[in-house]
Each structure stands twice: as structure tokens, then as C-alpha cells.
């Protein structure tokens, strides 16, 4: 989406004024002097892209092309053709890739939100085959933007593509640190799911029952801390769905969250399996009501379905009114199944 192009203050002269570029014929963008809906380019940008078009036309791949494409990228990091041509040039002239990666370290931070910055890095990594230093770099850039989509998918790609035990080793601690910073960071929850369940089974994790128990405990504790956190509830659903476990397995845990009081006083026993809502919890938690209704529906039978319907009704009319249509849809569907 449009965002102001950052103005580069590199004070180098225009390409048109530099003798070493004299042999290149700059190509203006439009033959028509008056195209509809023109963009008001800066002089610097127009100059660089005119020379870029000139270079593309002759097919030159040389050291100076790296300078030219860098100029364009700094002015407009979304110029994918400049990236593409730069990549081909790097290959053609066998440019040193460590230098290129160093430049990318800088550009990634400046232009975090562009696809190309991250993809270019990916291309370079496939060439160097050295993912080692990358995780630390990614962790650093997540400090700038903890939910950056490209950064997270780059990390996931790196792990999956190189699939190296040393890379995987620190991931759970890393996710945990991210969730400690912000337990509502859905990108981090997704990363956890990716690491634990979706990227294959690594050595030391073959005992899946233990892994599932570990994850259930982890997510329950986080729900206990902040009950109204849809990311954590989705993670809980994810664990159960992925492992074909019935939702009823966590019914005892869920129930207090669907109630109205934080009643921690009934017992002094600490039930590690079922951590209660925190004292500040704002109950009832609509995610818990929904979860409980799903348990009832899946257990089946007229009574349970009616209990589910009562819960959906309370969401539709009171606790989650914006989704009234959806809850009523669930009610209709459930009633159909009872009739059938």
C-alpha cells in the first residue's frame, strides 16, 4: 500500500551528469509526453530509472549496474524489476555475496515492509547455503516490528528449507521470549505451531503424547494469564484439531472461563492441569463460551446440543453481539442435525 518514499540524502550527482555513464542512453518512461495519471517523480528517481531502462535495453550486467540498482532501491524498494536485474547481475559478474548480504542487513531494517527485501535475502541464502547467522538477524529485526509478516515467513522458510537441527534447537525458547514480550502476538503463536506441529518431527520430539501435553500446559497457562486472548484459544483449538483430540479433553479447564466469577477461593489445591483465570480476568470470556458450546455440540445428543444452543444464544444476544448472524447460523445448523 502506498507509503511515502523515504527520501535518500545521498548527495551523489545525477547519472546524467556523470562522465562514466556517458555511454548509456537514458530511456524516458513514456514516448507520449502526456500520459494519464502521471506520478510526480523526484528528479533523482527519474534520472536513475531512465538509466535503468537504458541498461535493461542493452542487457549490460556489470559492477556499475549494482550501483544503479541500489540507487533505485533506496528510492523505491518496491521496484521489483531493479531487484530482479540486480540479482541477475550479481550472478553474472560473480559478485561477492557477503558484501551483498551486509548491504541487505542495512536495507532490511530501513524497508522492513517490502516483499523484495526479504525475498532477495532468500535468494542470497540459497546461494551461500549459510543460514547460521540469520536467526539472530531476524530476531533483531523483529524488535523493530514484532508482527512483520515477511520477517516471520522468512524465518519459517529458513528453518524449513535448511532443516538443520542446530537451527531448530533454539526455536521454542525464542517463541517463548516473544510471547513473554507480547502474549497477544499472533505471529509468535503461529510460529510456535509451525515449529511444534507442522514442520515435521525432529529427534527428541518423537514421543508425541508428551509434546501434546507440554503444549496443552503451555497454552492453558497463557490463557490463565490473559483469558481474553483469541490467539491463545486458536492455538488450543489447533493442538486438538491437529492431533485429532476431542475438545472435551479440556472441558474442565474451559468451564471456569465461561462463568462469570473468578472464583479462586473454592480450593487451595493448585491444579496444574487446569489453571484458573487470573484474578484480573474479565469474565465470562466469549472464546470460552464458544469453546464450551463446541464441546457440547460435538458430544452430541439432544441435551448437549440444547446446552450448546443456549451458549450460542448468549453470545448472539449479549457477549458477542457483532457476530449475531454467525451464532444464529450455528444454532440453525445444530438444530438441523438434531432433527436428522
Amino acid at each position: 500500500m502506498p507509503s511515502p518514499a523515504s527520501s535518500s540524502d545521498t548527495s551523489s550527482a545525477l547519472y546524467a551528469e556523470r562522465p562514466e555513464w556517458k555511454d548509456v542512453t537514458p530511456l524516458p518512461q513514456y514516448e507520449d509526453a502526456n500520459p494519464i495519471a502521471p506520478i510526480f517523480y523526484s528528479e533523482e528517481y527519474k534520472d536513475a530509472t531512465d538509466y535503468f531502462r537504458g541498461i535493461v535495453k542493452t542487457g549490460e550486467k556489470s559492477e556499475r549496474v549494482l550501483e544503479l540498482t541500489e540507487s533505485i532501491i533506496r528510492l523505491n524498494p518496491a521496484h521489483y524489476s531493479a531487484w530482479q536485474y540486480r540479482y541477475e547481475t550479481l550472478l553474472a559478474i560473480k559478485a561477492p555475496l557477503d558484501v551483498e548480504l551486509k548491504l541487505m542487513d542495512e536495507l532490511a531494517v530501513s524497508f522492513l515492509k517490502t516483499y523484495q527485501v526479504w525475498h532477495h535475502r532468500r535468494l542470497l541464502l540459497m546461494l551461500t547455503g549459510n543460514p547460521g547467522p540469520e536467526l539472530k538477524f531476524i530476531t533483531e529485526s523483529l524488535k523493530v516490528d514484532a508482527k512483520n509478516y515477511h520477517t516471520w515467513s522468512y524465518r519459517q522458510w529458513l528453518l524449513a528449507f535448511f532443516n538443520d537441527d542446530d537451527l531448530w534447537a533454539g526455536e521454542l525458547d525464542f517463541v517463548d521470549a516473544m510471547l513473554v514480550q507480547d502474549v497477544r502476538n499472533n505471529s509468535a503463536w503461529h510460529h510456535r505451531f509451525f515449529v511444534v506441529f507442522q514442520s515435521g518431527v525432529r529427534e527428541g520430539e518423537t514421543e508425541r503424547g508428551r509434546i501434546v501435553r507440554r503444549e496443552l500446559t503451555y497454552v492453558k497457562q497463557n490463557i490463565s494469564l490473559v483469558p481474553n486472548n483469541p490467539s491463545a484459544w486458536n492455538y488450543l483449538r489447533g493442538i486438538l484439531d491437529f492431533n485429532n483430540l476431542p475438545y472435551s479433553r479440556v472441558e474442565d479447564f474451559v468451564r471456569p472461563y465461561a462463568g462469570t466469577t473468578t472464583d479462586g477461593s473454592t480450593t487451595d489445591l493448585v491444579d496444574l492441569e487446569n489453571p484458573p483465570p487470573s484474578t484480573n480476568a474479565q469474565l465470562p470470556c466469549s472464546a470460552a463460551i464458544e469453546f464450551l458450546a463446541d464441546i457440547h455440540e460435538k458430544e452430541g445428543g439432544k441435551d448437549r446440543v440444547l446446552q450448546a444452543i443456549a451458549l450460542w444464544r448468549s453470545l448472539a444476544d449479549e457477549h458477542d453481539t457483532i457476530r449475531k448472524k454467525y451464532w444464529e447460523y450455528r444454532i440453525r445448523e445444530a438444530l438441523k442435525s438434531v432433527k436428522e
Partner: peptide, 25 residues
């Protein structure tokens, strides 16, 4: 205004999306 007078300089970041600017408009 965008179509006739043109897009202000901040749309330079959309230089690689010119058909999009036309389609969106």
C-alpha cells in the same frame, strides 16, 4: 484529481504498480 493532475510524489513507491493505480481508480 489523481487521474487528471497526477499522483503526488509519495506515490513514487507505487512506480512498480502503475497498472494498479489505474485499476484502483
Amino acid at each position: 484529481r489523481n487521474l487528471v493532475q497526477g499522483f503526488p510524489a509519495r506515490y513514487m513507491s507505487q512506480d512498480a504498480s502503475q497498472p494498479w493505480l489505474l485499476f484502483w481508480t
